[in-house]
């Protein structure tokens, strides 16, 4: 089973390492046609606007079709890309998650932080870097993790997203969750 990591720009290498540690065969996806060979895709942290622009119209369209059919997991910028509605500023999204997400919602880099949140009821370290906030969660979405009162990881069918960076912590639970999703016949 091959798992893709979108490697247009961002911390794709941290995701690659984590997925390989967990036994997955990883493909770094730079071109749309590579999407045909993978069972699921991680969209890493980075700059969401830059990733959209580098992908171009054709790339975005192909990605949209992919996330409609196959499992996807976005962290930070990846979560922004997967969302239906994006603010601060408005930008187009892939529409795979019925959420409204606000970019740079905590402020600038000096407001970045490492906090303890909850994955279900268990504690989880969360690294927030110029992170977005989920401002609206649509019906039928499952909130996987919270920090304070804020939902910070959600799932809708085969699509997962976290506003923090599990790839920058030692804890592997979020990635395991995603690999389970791929294994559960969603491919």
């Amino acid at each position: 089973m091959k798992v893709g990591v979108l490697a247009v720009q961002g911390d794709f290498d941290a995701h690659r390492k984590r997925l390989e540690e967990l036994g997955a065969e990883v493909v770094l996806v730079r071109k749309p046609e590579q999407l045909d060979e993978i069972a699921g895709l991680v969209l890493p942290g980075g700059e969401s606007g830059a990733i959209l622009r580098i992908l171009g119209e054709r790339g975005v369209e192909k990605l949209k079709q992919f996330v409609r059919r196959k499992p996807a997991f976005g962290t930070c910028a990846g979560a922004i890309l997967l969302a239906k509605e994006i603010t601060n500023p408005e930008q187009p999204g892939l529409g795979a998650l019925d959420i409204r997400i606000r970019r740079n919602a905590y402020g600038r880099q000096i407001d970045s932080s490492i906090r303890e949140g909850r994955l279900g009821s268990a504690p989880l370290e969360m690294v927030f870097i110029r992170a977005p906030k989920i401002e609206r969660v649509g019906p039928g979405l499952e909130v996987l993790a919270t920090e304070g009162k804020d939902p910070v990881a959600v799932r809708q069918g085969k699509t997962m997203a976290a506003t923090f960076h599990p790839e920058l912590s030692d804890d592997t639970r979020m990635h395991q969750e995603f690999l389970k999703l791929i294994g559960n016949g969603h491919n």
């Binding site: 490697a7 247009v8 720009q9 961002g10 911390d11 794709f12 290498d13 941290a14 942290g45 980075g46 700059e47 930070c76 910028a77 880099q109 970045s112 932080s113 490492i114 690294v127 870097i129 110029r130 960076h165 920058l168």
Partner: peptide, 11 residues
């Protein structure tokens, strides 16, 4: 956190 932002700028 400082290195984390640099990670986001890779590529």
């Amino acid at each position: 956190l400082k290195i984390g932002l640099a990670e986001m700028l890779k590529g």
